[in-house]
Structure formats: structure tokens, C-alpha cells
Amino acid sequence: MNQRETFAMAELPKGIQKITTLPNKGLADLWDSIIIEKEMKQGLLSQALLSLTLRSRVPRSVIPLHGIVLLTGLPGTGKTSLARGLAHRLSQALEGANLRLLEIEPHSLASAAHGKTQQAVTDLFRQTISEAASSGPVIVLLDEVETLAADRAKMSLEANPVDVHRATDAVLVQLDLLAEQHPNLLFVATSNFPQAVDEAFLSRCDMVLEVPLPDRDACRLILLDCIRGLARVFPAIGRLEQARGMHECAAACVGLDGRAIRKMVANALALTPETALNPEGLTMTALLTAAKAAHTSRVKGSRG
């Protein structure tokens, strides 16, 4: 961590969880770890690059870009990791741009006091984010965007505090102002529940990308990535790359998200005390057993 990043983290404003100077090797690993179609990643990167390069040259009256990308999908599909990795990839593509990644903690802005949530949101966008963008290009990660941009059409003032409505109003107003003032600013938002996001926010998104559950081929690639990663520490595990049963194991993982598949590999190591103490004893049979168990558990959980 460099001096600039340490100083930034020591004085984080309210609503900012983390500030990262780019490029960042750890974020590069995150980008590579999310196994989705190559065209999907390329489309996401291209849209983000377009936003950061076109908006400063073409009036919004011609191309009304807001500089907002929304990633949706089930929990565990890698939306947040993909967003963080995207920030790194942008810094590589825009070499010398001195990009920074600001990660927002939306829950820290909520308040039971009347008017406080709206004011906190306004201060975050109008002051903190605007000031950051004034000193160079910034990527803002807004996780769980439905927390700050809840669908007002599905709420009633009787059941929901008026501040929830006003916070959404404040977000929309500030996004419009920031889009006008800072073409070097890109928001990457995520949501597990896009149906809970306000329609006006969705209309401002330049791209909405659903990150899918992995298909069988993607499940196989995730499994191979886990095996190769483990083999760097426990070399004997590398033999499983060519082991029979890999396709069957991948098929058993269909329906799981990427995070669950990687946890399943850990569960396979924990099936016996022997492999827990010596992971090099991992077998394809253990992986298949754990995959089936994880799949069955996920199905039961969804019914519960």
C-alpha cells in the first residue's frame, strides 16, 4: 500500500469504505477469477472505456451517457469482484490516467433522524465524490444500489420513512449533476434485486449487464482454476486437472454460483480429517461428492 493510499484510508469520509489507487494486482486477480463469457467481459470493458473517453468530447444532448453501469445477478455470481477487476482493467487500458477506485458503503448513510439520510447522500455525491473527480478520473463502486435508489413506485409513505423516498430523489439529482460536471467519473453499481431498483435510476444506466450462473463449461473452468491455485501450494493436487470425472463434477455444479463452487472445493477437502490435514490427498470422488451435496443443499435452501 503506498503513502497516498494509506493517507486516504486514514481519513475516509462518511459513506466511503475504501479508496484504492490503480492499477492494483489484487484487483487484476479478481477480474481473472470471474469466469463468464469472454464477449461479456469485453462488452463491459468497452462500455466503461467509451464512457470515460466519449463523454468529454460529445455533448450529452447527442449521446446522453450518465457514466453508470449496473451489474445484476444472483448472490455469489461475482458482480462485486467483476466491478473491482474492471477498475483495474480500465487503468491498464487508460495507461497514465491515474485512476482511483472509491467503494461506497451505502448502509452507513442511513439514519433514523428525519432528513439525515437525504443530507448524507447529498454530501457524499456533491462533495466527496465530486471533489475526488475534480482531481482525476474516478471509478465509484456502489454495491447494493437498491439501498440508495429504492423503487419509489413500490413503496408507500405509510410503510416507509419519507427519507427513503428523499434519498432516492437525492441520488438521482446528484447523478445528473455529476454526469454534467465530471465526464471522468464512472459509477459501477451492483444489485442482487434489480426489481427493487428505482426505474428512474435504471433509465440513467448506460448498460445493465446480468452476470449469469455458470454453465457446465464455466463450472469446469472454475474447478480447474481452484485446482491450479491449490496445486501451487500442494503440487500433488495438480493431477486432478486430467482426472476422469471432471465433466461429471462440473455437471453436478450447474445451478451453483461461482462462490459456492469454490467453497464446495473447500468442503471436499474437509470431508475427512486426513485431507483436511493433507490436502494433497484430495480425490475426484471427494469433489463429486461435495458438488452433489452443495447442489442438493442449495435446492433445499431455495425451497425453505
Score class of each variant (00 low, 15 high):
residue 101 L to W: 06
residue 12 L to A: 02
residue 219 C to N: 04
residue 14 K to I: 15
residue 95 E to C: 03
residue 116 K to Y: 08
residue 286 A to H: 13
residue 25 K to E: 15
residue 287 L to A: 05
residue 54 L to N: 10
residue 137 P to Q: 01
residue 233 V to Y: 04
residue 285 T to D: 13
residue 255 G to I: 06
residue 284 M to C: 12
residue 301 G to Y: 09
residue 107 H to L: 11
residue 29 D to M: 05
residue 217 D to H: 12
residue 74 L to S: 09
residue 252 A to P: 13
residue 130 S to F: 06
residue 120 A to W: 00
residue 233 V to R: 13
residue 175 L to N: 10
residue 272 T to D: 12
residue 22 L to M: 04
residue 276 A to Y: 13
residue 229 G to R: 08
residue 59 P to E: 04
residue 97 A to E: 04
residue 89 R to A: 03
residue 84 R to H: 11
residue 293 A to L: 03
residue 262 R to E: 12
residue 215 D to E: 13
residue 266 A to C: 08
residue 260 A to I: 02
residue 267 N to P: 00
residue 115 G to W: 00
residue 15 G to L: 09
residue 166 R to K: 11
residue 81 S to C: 05
residue 245 G to D: 04
residue 223 L to M: 14
residue 155 M to I: 09
residue 129 I to P: 01
residue 244 R to V: 13
residue 44 L to C: 07
residue 132 A to C: 07
residue 27 L to S: 00
residue 175 L to W: 15
residue 303 R to G: 03
residue 15 G to K: 01
residue 288 L to H: 07
residue 99 L to F: 06
residue 218 A to C: 05
residue 260 A to M: 02
residue 195 Q to I: 04
residue 105 E to P: 03
residue 168 T to M: 00
residue 235 P to W: 10
residue 239 R to V: 09
residue 155 M to F: 07
residue 30 L to C: 04
residue 227 I to Q: 06
residue 104 I to V: 15
residue 208 V to Y: 02
residue 86 L to V: 10
residue 151 D to L: 14
residue 77 T to A: 07
residue 100 R to K: 14
residue 223 L to E: 09
residue 127 Q to L: 05
residue 137 P to R: 01
residue 285 T to I: 06
residue 197 V to K: 04
residue 93 A to P: 01
residue 87 A to Q: 02
residue 142 L to A: 14
residue 242 Q to Y: 05
residue 76 G to C: 04
residue 214 P to T: 15
residue 243 A to K: 02
residue 196 A to T: 03
residue 250 A to Y: 01
residue 19 I to S: 02
residue 214 P to D: 12
residue 99 L to E: 10
residue 267 N to D: 15
residue 138 V to G: 00
residue 304 G to Q: 10
residue 274 E to S: 08
residue 293 A to Q: 10
residue 232 R to A: 13
residue 172 L to Q: 06
residue 58 V to Q: 12
residue 187 F to P: 11
residue 204 R to K: 11
residue 254 V to R: 00
residue 30 L to N: 03
residue 268 A to H: 07
residue 231 A to Q: 06
residue 244 R to P: 14
residue 94 L to T: 00
residue 60 R to Y: 07
residue 108 S to H: 01
residue 31 W to H: 07
residue 169 D to S: 10
residue 175 L to H: 02
residue 220 R to F: 15
residue 132 A to Y: 01
residue 288 L to R: 10
residue 122 T to W: 10
residue 174 Q to H: 05
